[in-house]
Design a protein around this nucleic acid. Structure first.
Lengths: 226, 226, 226, 226
DNA sequence: TATGAATGAGGGTTCATTCAT
DNA sequence: CATGAATGAACCCTCATTCAT
């Protein structure tokens, strides 16, 4: 029948379908919750037959994992990009900028926050970073650099990502030990405390909480200073 | 269903049916997850007819809330009790003792940790404390005292629980401001960071993480010192 | 998309399934009553999976409405067709013929009578006629013509169905006012009185009741003569 | 235990419970519909244990039949009583008065109408009259007298109720044949036509319909005049 | 590839009925 | 007589998954 169409178009179409499924799923997940969304719903919204879903994803949870990974990376990558632009010289200021960027981003999109936070943990996060061979993968190495080192770092010297604790750059007069633990702690502190505060303004508002939060992050950095 | 001859057992069952349902639900929730547990499963495991479930609980989530509240309170209450026994004079030491107790308790019961952590947030926690008029209710007031004030505090002076931030006792030479935010932060920090560490020993072991954690708690306390 | 080759077959099959469901439902409704028939029963009898039912009908009552409408229309349409064939010149005789036809039809199929009479009211009847855009729809306009006007009526002149009371054709020397009320009264009288008489022969037999009934219908017609 | 109490009180209490159950059922049936009312609901509203229901009624439908019979009789009896009071000399006027009374009564209580009309047919009606040995039984004989004979009728002459067709009183100058059929027709005509008209004002209002209705009743009476 | 009709297991929920007290 | 906890069958409905087209 229609098999005379050129292959490029078909492939493009295929890609588009996956994209549409992801998009549809995201809209439904954020609006109704993952548990209240059926594969039928997703397919219907993507204007795709139900059976087609299974050509791209195993089940609802695979699409969920995809979304969590890509949405997280999206946020972090854009924070990272903005930080790069600013060329902030101080490590601490860089960390602050990035975290502040992420918090404000999530505060401006509570549905995304709800979706991400209910599912995202540091475990999922690092898993996504290291295991996902897809296009959205974040360069964790660079992230760390932006977060805690001066951007003038020599790239060539960091290639053993899984051994972050050994990263000790001399790019400023401050060095850190146990960088992975440090990042882990910051990540968990920020995500867990901000969730309620953004969504319910409890026990206080985001604005009035930030001084405490950044004070603590400073303390975490100090803890790991050598 | 055939109950056999022993009437005493029937009576026992009647009295403890709710207990049995809670117990069965807890076992299934921790083993299979809440979403993968059906009311049928719970009833079957509790050796009770499916319809009987509805005599005690509205749905799966009511039983879940019950369990979260009671299990949390159990832990916190026993930590609190132990702390009382010790009569630790210093506030900081008290806080450290209680948090350490809870962490070790959860580390010794990973199933409980999985269940609690997936469901417990500070919001649920305080809700449980303030709204639940059931038997397991924790005395939040005393908890706060144990956590941050000297135990010799005069109880009569604290009765406005909802205005925790105004509690400023002169029982030690240290006073705190924004106590609710302080507790919130500690709670979220501890629960979110310990989850992965206990269950996966990632990014490090509990033992090696504790110094960082308690260092941070100390920083939080210092932040709120007046 | 392009798989339209055997769509005809699929659609035909679908139509058959709907038919089977309707048939099964009808048999069960007449034998056991609507309230005593479950969707499971209907699906089982239609040799179809339970879930399949929901592909065609929202619930038991949708199928019931379908059946009432189609069965009623079937009867009335065939009465109407027969009357057309006869080319009876007198209005009154036309009305008598049609009503008599319907009564005899129902008397010959008590199950249908039970089903129809328990559910059919004039409200349902007219609703079916005007709102249902399906294949079984009766041409109410023509029905009215056959019932009370000479069949030589010029169709073009009647197109405002909702304003039946204004239909006043000069096709015979008799005109009627309040035609809708007239039809309503005849409909209700016939259906309510015949129900017991056909099913129980109480308080008399159908044969001996007919003179009274048709005498009354004549009186109704006379009431509305202008 | 309480078996020392006098029997009168116990019996009275028993009667009260039955009464309460009937009352509760009526309220629920009219408000929610019979099918949407459970035995639990009835018992709860009657402030009686669920098991107690079964001491008085076999099931929901027994209580329904009770109610239909008693409510119908209530209406008819009060119409009858009012007619007696008026001492209307003419048969026709008597019939008109009673029917008008009933129609207006039902029009003023649509919930009762819904309940009665969905269930009441002439069959149920006469069954109730003849089979029910309870307190609310209507004196059908007197009813007929009031409806179609002068009230000065000699009671002694009518005692074969089941042979109503033989009742031919000389109390006015008008005699009727086939009285049972006559009453049947009037009953069915009135109840079926008034249902929609009262509840939906379709196809017209009650007020504007009455002339037609009473015209027809007059025609029915005339049909049976000897 | 793509489709969407069909499936049927399994979930939640209700409720008439029983029965030990 | 009265109770009401317990039962479990039966209901409705959803939905992941399959498969012929």
């Amino acid at each position: 029948m229609c098999y005379g169409a050129d292959m490029g178009k078909i492939l493009e179409n295929k890609k588009k379908k996956k994209e549409r499924l992801l998009e549809a799923a995201y809209e439904l997940f954020t609006a109704e919750g993952v548990e209240n969304t059926s594969i039928s719903d997703i397919a219907r919204r993507a204007l795709v037959a139900k059976g087609t879903f299974y050509l791209y994803f195993k089940d609802k949870y695979e699409i969920e994992r995809h979304l969590i990974a890509s949405k997280s990376n999206e946020i972090i990558a854009s924070a990272f990009k903005e930080a790069m632009k600013k060329k902030i010289p101080s490590n601490k200021e860089n960390v602050f900028f990035i975290i502040n960027y992420i918090i404000d981003f999530l505060a401006s999109d509570p549905k995304l926050l709800t979706f991400i936070s209910k599912n995202l943990s540091w475990g999922v996060f690092t898993e996504a970073i290291f295991n996902d061979s897809e296009e959205n993968v974040l360069d964790y190495e660079k992230l760390v650099n932006v977060l805690i080192y001066d951007v003038r770092v020599n790239d060539g010297e960091i290639n053993e990502i899984s051994d972050l604790s050994k990263l000790e750059f001399d790019t400023s007069n401050v060095k850190y030990k146990d960088v992975d633990i440090m990042i882990y702690t910051i990540f968990e502190l920020v995500s867990s405390t901000c969730y309620n505060i953004i969504l319910n303004e409890k026990p206080t508002t985001l604005k009035s909480y930030k001084p405490y939060l950044f004070g603590l992050i400073e303390a975490i950095l100090k803890q790991h200073e050598i």
